[in-house]
Amino acid sequence: MNAAALAQEELLNSIPFCRWMGIRVLQDDDGVILELPFAQKLIGNPLLPALHGGVIGALLETAALAQVVHELACAELPKPVDMAIDYLRSGRALASYARARIVKRGRRTVNVHAQMWQEDEARPIAALRGHVLLQR
């Protein structure tokens, strides 16, 4: 793992909820990816079965915050201001992945987008658009 991935792994390991969900850090040529291995507790609809919308939101929001912390070398976790989540496809009982990118860095706020997929990054299951407030 490179320094970026290691730093994000250390950050996520320090957050109890991320540890409890089982979020892991991976990397590829395009940067850092968060992985959420499938677990029964992540289910929202047992009939399909499908991941809970809150699980999808939680992974996307974590990816967005971690990307901002890493890219801007924040000493403190930024505060989420607002998040809009689009649910594109049903989240199946499979491992999920998320990647975030900063769209615009302002002096106090950052606009960040994130995408989540399962088997194919070109077929996202959800997308997030949000603003976070930098802490100083």
Binding site: G54, V55, G57, A58, L59
Partner: peptide, 16 residues
């Protein structure tokens, strides 16, 4: 907890 320094709950819990 989403922020270990403050004990504030993770945004994903509120989303859920």
């Amino acid at each position: 907890i989403g922020d270990p320094k403050t004990g504030v709950i993770h945004g994903g819990v509120i989303t859920s």
